[in-house]
Design a protein around this nucleic acid. Structure first.
Lengths: 211, 211
DNA sequence: TATAAATTAAAACAGATGTTTTAAACTAAG
DNA sequence: CTTAGTTTAAAACATCTGTTTTAATTTATA
């Protein structure tokens, strides 16, 4: 008795695909409903508003990712000596688990996160802090364990540099992959960007403090 | 005989201020003309379109910044041994020179650049490559001199991670500075972000290659 | 000063957006 | 089968966007 695909799910899936490709603000409700082959008004009927739809799309991933990340960080936290590299490697497994949400889930999630952070900093910041504030705190804790020589404020800034590089790598990912393929003849799968990113981030965070 | 402030300059100045604060797409022509106290239609009269206005705003800074950067890079290029840190330090002086364009010019320029890159990747990429492609090539050259162990494609990716971190630090700069002040009681001037950023970037680029 | 050109002003235009309203169609319980 | 509740459909709404048009005004030229 396979349940039929509900309108609500059609909308979520269409919105997710279009959001990940073009961003939230650049994607109109008409594009979504046309792609989902449902009526325009059904978005506001099922979700109330576009903003609520965006949150619903993000929630499907965050509810899987955040607890998994928290688990990894908690496990790492038990150790007495922690490297920055280990902290960032904590993101790998939770990211992989997003494949269970959907094929290509890890890449989709990172794209969505990139656009979310790029377009609606305040909005997402509030949502993330409200729902997953504990995870973020644990992240800062283990990062500080890995880099006790860094002052809290310097770590704060570097964490946001990290976010910036990550977000951008994802948002610009498709375009950059094309250029890399054309200029260097090296095809890079979307999920391989993370492999290139993590050493860079760890190197940045581990750098000597500014004088 | 101080020349009166022309409508064209009023528009440029108002647009620059609003663009730097809210981004290009988030700033409407009506906001600009209201702030500049000029008629709405005068934008299209003097510039032709909003896109052309954006380019005009950017050009005022790029025409000062890019040649100055090229000079720094060319000077560094004469040396036989170059560190990544030296490459990034090449940006400091050209940035400072933007104070001659306007008070707070360096910060304004970085904000504009951040929004430009975040919102209209292709558009700005084309413009930059068309007008200042030689500078970008020289930048890649010296970066490769500083890191001969990195493959061209890896350097390509890291350069864009650098861009992402930089852009984001600037776009999110004001908000982050507020948070840093509130949470850590440390006030950071806008131009000091660069001091925190450069060590991070150099550390990231210098990191060992991914296995 | 008279005339031509350049600039400014006000209004309308054409298109897109998120949202709401109203009615129709479907679905499930009594 | 009938009815009540849920869902879908079509249209209109209100607002905003960049742009164009037309006329008035200012500026500069001869």
């Amino acid at each position: 008795m396979a349940k039929r695909v509900t309108t609500k799910d059609k909308i979520l899936n269409a919105a997710e695909a279009l959001f990940a490709e073009h961003g939230f603000e650049q994607t109109s409700l008409r594009q979504i409903t046309a792609f989902a082959e449902v009526n325009l008004a059904s978005v506001n009927y099922h979700f109330g508003s576009k903003k609520a739809l965006i949150q619903a799309v993000m929630a499907r991933y965050l509810e899987v990712f955040m607890p998994a990340l928290d688990l990894q960080l908690a496990s790492l936290q038990k150790q007495h000596v922690i490297s920055t590299r280990q902290v960032f490697d904590c993101f790998r497994e939770p990211l992989k688990q997003l494949s269970s949400v959907r094929k290509g889930g890890p890449t989709l999630f990172l794209s969505l996160l990139g656009f979310a952070y790029a377009e609606i900093q305040g909005h997402l910041r509030r949502y993330t802090m409200d729902h997953f504030g504990a995870v973020m705190e644990r992240l800062l804790t283990v990062l500080h364990m890995a880099n006790p020589q860094l002052s809290p404020v310097d770590m704060f800034w570097r964490l946001h540099f990290v976010l910036g590089a990550t977000v951008f790598a994802q948002v610009s990912g498709p375009a950059l992959r094309e250029i890399a393929a054309a200029d260097f003849g090296e095809t890079v799968r979307a999920d391989q960007i993370v492999d290139k990113l993590i050493p860079f981030l760890a190197g940045g965070v581990d750098a000597a403090s500014p004088t």
